[in-house]
């Protein structure tokens, strides 16, 4: 097993961990979003979706642990890379031309990532906690929980803001993972890049639309 530790400790190994965990989280986001979209169908649809998941709770718990591990590796490695890379660049140039030779998304992964991380903590401690460990009375509705939280404008606006940055993060992260794996090709890479941007926009817009929908349109009610 020593080799795996050595591998993930190497420069390319660290990138590999970022890419593997990142791509997994990208897949997770699709599933998460699919579930969330039931909010748009009806209160019943959403509630029954969540209740259905409850039936396979033990399985979900296992998945959650794996997911948590992915998040932890991704976040830990991200911070570590950022810290080490800062050390490797001991000083900065007088004139900064980074906007001319790279995209803002690629340069700000640590910022977008950090904000999404803060969002994640908030999200877990509010919605996720309430869904899983909240007081569930007779007529409780998961939908109501969502509505309650998103009625708070500060909370909702932060959600929207975090989702925009998530979009930034994904826009770079998606194609970056392919580069890290070495999956590049003259013909396919431009497509991957476009797909990544499309994915990032869809995710950001779709996730951000939910708090907006609840805040301004009261969930359509």
């Amino acid at each position: 097993m020593g080799w795996i530790l050595k591998f993930v400790d190497s420069s390319i190994g660290k990138k590999f961990v970022m890419a593997v965990t990142g791509l997994s989280l990208i897949l997770f986001l699709i599933i998460h979003l699919a579930g969330n979209l039931t909010l748009y169908i009806s209160e019943e649809a959403f509630n029954s979706y969540v209740s259905t998941i409850d039936i396979i709770k033990p399985l979900i718990r296992v998945a959650e642990v794996i997911l948590a591990l992915f998040f932890i590796f991704h976040i830990y490695n991200g911070f570590r890379l950022w810290y080490e890379n800062r050390k490797a660049k001991s000083s900065k140039y007088k004139v900064n031309v980074s906007s001319k030779n790279s995209t803002i998304y690629s340069r700000t992964m640590i910022i977008s990532g950090s904000i999404v991380f803060i969002f994640l903590i908030l999200h877990l401690s509010t919605m996720w906690y309430a869904f899983n460990f909240g007081e569930h009375g007779e007529n409780h509705s998961y939908y109501k929980i969502v509505l309650d939280w998103f009625s708070n404008p500060v909370y909702s606006m932060f959600y929207v803001f975090a989702m925009v940055l998530l979009g930034f993060h994904l826009n770079h992260g998606f194609q970056s993972a392919f580069q890290t794996f070495g999956w590049t090709h003259k013909k396919y890479t431009p497509f991957i890049e476009k797909l990544g941007t499309l994915y990032a926009i869809v995710m950001a817009v779709a996730f951000a639309s939910i708090p907006i929908y609840f805040l301004f349109f009261f969930g359509g009610k």
């Binding site: 390319i12 890379l81 050390k87």
Partner: peptide, 17 residues
């Protein structure tokens, strides 16, 4: 790559600068 890492170069974050 092993020596590259030892020499104090940072890792690539795919900015392509």
């Amino acid at each position: 790559v092993a020596v590259m890492d030892e020499m104090g170069f940072g890792s690539c974050t795919n900015t392509y600068a």
